[in-house]
């Protein structure tokens, strides 16, 4: 099933996309069309947002780094999230803003000191993030610093969370990003340095993960700087297709 977070009839709620993807079933048993809702990023309020740097070997090499020996994790707030078909505003004082297509694992049950072998039992589902970086603002303090990776509306997320059972092996999924129809990223989750199960095992070895927490698992090769009005689509096999447009920060 595909779970969407939305506003309908003046209320935030979760819904389930019907099998033909033409409508959304709400918790009260009614069904509504896409035109009757406003889609929101499928995130649980308060959830911890983990993100990974350098988690694909080819992207590490592209940026001049050796792949890390332990996960390079950073944390994000919720200010960056923007729903499917939203707008990500490019800063006026920066041009090196590049989309990063990422598989996102959503935690489904509390995880503390879980083994890699048991880790995927703790995943509720998967979604897609386009986790922009703006390279002009890189500084070597707690890098990647939040001014690069946690800017308002520069993390499109969605369009939905797909149940883990419907996705299967999270390490066998193609990822692509297109900008105005041209492919700028093309990779596979099989090339992750630390697969989803190992990330959950590592994080839960020293902290408790809770339902709704999200892990943005990193991005493959392909650094392409976007411009205002670019149409960007991030796609992850078996999960979906996340679209947004590049705007300009007022």
């Amino acid at each position: 099933m595909k779970h969407v977070r939305l506003i309908h009839a003046g209320r935030e709620q979760w819904g389930v996309v019907t099998a033909d993807e033409q409508a959304i079933a709400l918790a009260d048993g009614t069904s509504v069309g896409w035109g009757d809702i406003t889609l929101l990023p499928p995130v649980t309020p308060g959830a911890t947002i983990f993100a990974l740097g350098l988690n694909y070997a080819d992207h590490s090499v592209e940026l001049g780094f050796k792949p890390p020996s332990q996960p390079l994790v950073f944390l994000k707030g919720h200010n960056g999230f923007v729903a499917h078909n939203g707008v990500s505003p490019k800063p006026r004082d920066a041009d090196q803003m590049h989309p990063e297509c990422e598989l996102v694992a959503v935690i489904g049950r509390t995880a503390k000191r879980v083994s890699a072998a048991d880790a995927l039992d703790h995943v509720a589902g998967y979604t897609i993030a386009c986790d922009y970086a703006v390279r002009e603002f890189l500084e070597n303090y707690y890098r990647p610093n939040l001014r690069v990776k946690n800017r308002d509306a520069l993390t499109p997320l969605g369009p939905w969370v797909v149940d883990a059972a419907d996705v299967g092996d999270p390490q066998a999924l193609a990822l692509t990003t297109t900008v105005n129809g041209a492919t700028v990223q093309s990779g596979s989750t099989r090339d992750m340095v630390f697969p989803v199960a190992e990330l959950i095992a590592w994080l839960s070895s020293f902290m408790t993960l809770s339902p709704g927490d999200m892990i943005l698992t990193g991005t493959p090769h392909g650094v392409h700087f976007v411009s205002e009005d670019d149409a960007v689509i991030c796609e992850v096999e078996r999960v979906g297709r996340l679209a947004h447009r590049v705007g300009l920060k007022p």
Partner: peptide
């Protein structure tokens, strides 16, 4: 190295809900 120069912007970190 590894810093190169003093910090320019505030260096933020997140303390998550756990």
């Amino acid at each position: 190295a590894p810093y190169g120069k003093p910090p320019v912007a505030p260096i933020l970190y997140v303390k998550p809900r756990n």
